[in-house]
Simulated assay, not measured.
Amino acid sequence: MTQENLWLRNVEQNPAHSQWYINRFRAMAAQGADLDGEARLIDAMVPRGARILDAGCGPGRLGGYLAGRGHDVVGVDIDPALIDAAEDDHPGPNWLVGDLAELDLPARGVAEPFDAIVCAGNVMTFCAPSTRPAILRRFRAHLAERGRVVIGFGSGRGYDFDEFLVDAAKAGFNADVLLSTWDLRPFSPDDDFLVAVFSIA
């Protein structure tokens, strides 16, 4: 695992960071906040019983929702504390500790490709810049031929949208749809958030 990963650096500098993040989303859920916008979009894009990879799953809110809708979900996150929270709060999916830059699920007994891969929550911007192209290639290798990858993150976080789209094209993806929100608002160059829907080129 690379130590350039911003999430790991945050945890190293503040060992309570992971628990703060877990508690934040637990509190929001308890207050009735709508935490399922990303998951609803993915659910609408796939058939019932789809195989879905929640890449950078955190404490499991997205993958847990999708599993509750009958999908076969695998969640991967680099932080063991977040995976423990996902197992506690959202039993059902296959939650795994792993580095997306080294993603090799067949080696861990998860052989079938995915109908959808979702990477939400600014995950790509936490990953080391040197690993981002490799992560996109790993997503491509794990995707079913007619599957789609959906990635969302904000601007000003060290990964320029144009650079990201070039990296995705080099990894073998077509950008089918570009949105500015998870609720289907079209993307424009002035927007500060991007949700990109990719298919295999």
Rank of each mutant, 00 (worst) to 15 (best):
A101Y: 12
A81M: 12
V11W: 05
N174T: 14
G64K: 02
D72A: 13
L105N: 11
L143I: 12
S180G: 11
G98H: 05
A107W: 14
D167G: 00
L6P: 01
M124E: 06
A55N: 06
E102S: 15
G56T: 00
A30Y: 03
W20C: 01
N10M: 12
I83G: 09
A67V: 02
A201Y: 13
E12H: 14
G49M: 04
F164C: 01
V149C: 11
A111H: 15
A111G: 13
A128W: 03
H90T: 05
L96R: 15
G56F: 04
N10Y: 14
D160Q: 10
M45N: 04
W20L: 09
Q31L: 13
F126V: 03
G49R: 01
I42P: 03
D176A: 07
R40A: 02
I151T: 07
G92Q: 02
L82P: 04
L96M: 15
T2Y: 03
V74P: 10
D36K: 05
I42N: 00
E38F: 09
R69N: 10
C57R: 05
G58V: 01
D99L: 07
T2L: 02
L8G: 05
S199P: 08
V195I: 14
R40D: 02
Q31I: 04
G68Y: 03
Q19H: 10
C119N: 10
A39W: 05
S18F: 02
Q31C: 08
E112R: 15
A30R: 01
I42H: 00
A29Q: 12
E87N: 09
L103T: 09
S188V: 15
F153W: 08
N122L: 02
K170N: 13
A111K: 15
D77L: 10
A134R: 12
G68F: 09
L82I: 06
N94H: 15
A141G: 12
A86L: 02
R51N: 10
P91M: 06
T131M: 06
P129W: 07
L103I: 12
G68D: 00
I22M: 00
A39C: 09
A86S: 07
R61K: 13
R26E: 13
R26A: 10
L136T: 03
F164S: 04
I135H: 02
D99K: 11
L96P: 07
P59Y: 04
A116H: 11
N14E: 10
D43Y: 02
G70V: 10
P80N: 12
T181M: 05
F198T: 06
R148L: 14
R140I: 04
F187C: 08
C119D: 01
V197F: 01
K170M: 10
R26V: 12
N14L: 04
L184R: 15
A169D: 08
D160F: 03
A30G: 11
L105E: 12
L66Y: 09
V166E: 12
L66P: 07
C57H: 09
W182N: 01
L143A: 10
P113C: 09
A128M: 02
H142E: 07
L6W: 07
V166I: 11
A39V: 01
